[in-house]
Design a protein around this nucleic acid. Structure first.
Length: 336
DNA sequence: CACTTGACCTGTCCGC
DNA sequence: TGCGGACAGGTCAAGT
């Protein structure tokens, strides 16, 4: 479930790996995964990457862009290996031929992935690179394309970027760069949660929803950018606020605390690599540091790290919600 | 307009 | 062991 830290981690990886590369082809394996006409991207180089909330963008030369939303199960995986399209390539290991998209011999196994994730993306020599970010699943490390693969972007000499999305909620969209800002989600997007300048705008936007539960407001991208279910629960636990509390019942002081907590937990997650990437590959080849930072998310039944009372799972704003029933009361306790 | 609910989709897990 | 169903959750559309 890529949220802001995961998407930022993906962006940083792409910044390192694909900026400067000219696109040779863009192939949608099934309709729906790719919006817009990708043909203007062909032959153009990726000039820069950006992120706004959970939305990711690749800006190409001459004012073209590829915008991406990974939603819950999307991932972007970059592979550079013995090029199937490089004439007379060395004898390859003929891995399991998964898929129909030609001779895909760039399947790296988990060990290779971990070893080369450190990255040796040097100049002309295309070494083996296997990097992936987004939803943690075996598709990050297994042979590609696989059944979750929806779009393949080729850069030539065996370098490919795969857009995988098990549940098909995510999307890529090719468009003029100036059109990206007009995407409704981006046009309405609230402030990024980091830095002191986020607070006044967050307050203004949050206060418009007087009767809504604070959790629903945190999840609203037009109020504050980048927060999803995980970080909403974590921030409210850190600030000791019950997710069901209406905005009107929350003081400015507390509201500011919630924003700070959200920013802090997302920064922590970012430091841990966005809870995906090579962390996923590391520990026993699965689930590495994923969610290790979480104090309440998916920890129902476990003791609250602050008071020891078991974390409970309930439903707020139509979402699975985790909280400590002692630390997070519906009403502010009568002064401490 | 504020607020809530269902739909989208597929893999996984639970109970029978 | 198989099977139905609930659940996962970001965003949008449609509901009250």
């Amino acid at each position: 479930m890529p949220e802001l830290p995961e998407v930022e981690t993906v962006r940083r990886g792409l910044q390192r790996l694909v900026v400067g590369l000219p696109v040779r082809s863009v192939t949608a394996l099934e309709p729906g995964g790719l919006r817009g006409d990708p043909s203007p991207l062909i032959g153009r180089r990726i000039a820069k990457t950006w992120r706004r909330g959970k939305v990711l963008g690749l800006d190409f030369e001459d004012g073209w862009s590829l915008v991406a939303h990974l939603k819950m199960t999307g991932q972007l995986v970059y592979r550079a290996g013995p090029a199937a399209d490089a004439a007379g390539s060395a004898p390859d290991a003929a891995g399991p031929a998964a898929g129909d998209a030609g001779p895909a011999a760039d399947a790296a196994d988990a060990a290779d992935a971990a070893a080369s994730a450190a990255g040796d993306a040097a100049g002309d020599a295309v070494g083996d690179i296997a990097w992936g970010g987004g939803h943690p699943s075996d598709s990050l490390i297994g042979p590609l394309p696989d059944k979750s693969t929806r779009v393949i972007i080729e850069f030539g000499r065996g370098r490919r970027l795969y857009f995988n999305d098990q549940r098909k909620f995510g999307w890529l969209a090719a468009m003029p760069t100036i059109a990206a800002g007009a995407i409704p989600l981006l046009a309405k997007m609230g402030p990024e949660p980091f830095g002191p300048e986020a607070w006044p705008e967050f307050r203004r936007r949050a206060r418009r929803h007087r009767r809504a539960p604070i959790k629903a407001v945190l999840l609203d991208q037009s109020v504050i950018a980048g927060i999803g279910n995980i970080y909403a629960d974590e921030a409210l636990w850190a600030a000791r606020v019950h997710p069901q509390t209406t905005v009107a019942a929350i003081s400015d002081r507390k509201l500011k605390q919630i924003l700070s907590a959200a920013a802090a937990v997302m920064e922590l997650s970012l430091d841990l690599g966005g809870s995906t990437d090579r962390n996923y590959v590391d520990a026993e080849g699965r689930r590495g540091a994923y969610l290790d930072f979480a104090k309440v998310f998916r920890r129902q039944g476990q003791p609250c790290p602050r008071c020891g009372r078991p974390i409970i799972k309930t439903r707020v704003a139509g979402r699975g919600t985790h909280l400590c029933p002692r630390c997070q009361r519906r009403q502010t306790p009568p002064a401490a």
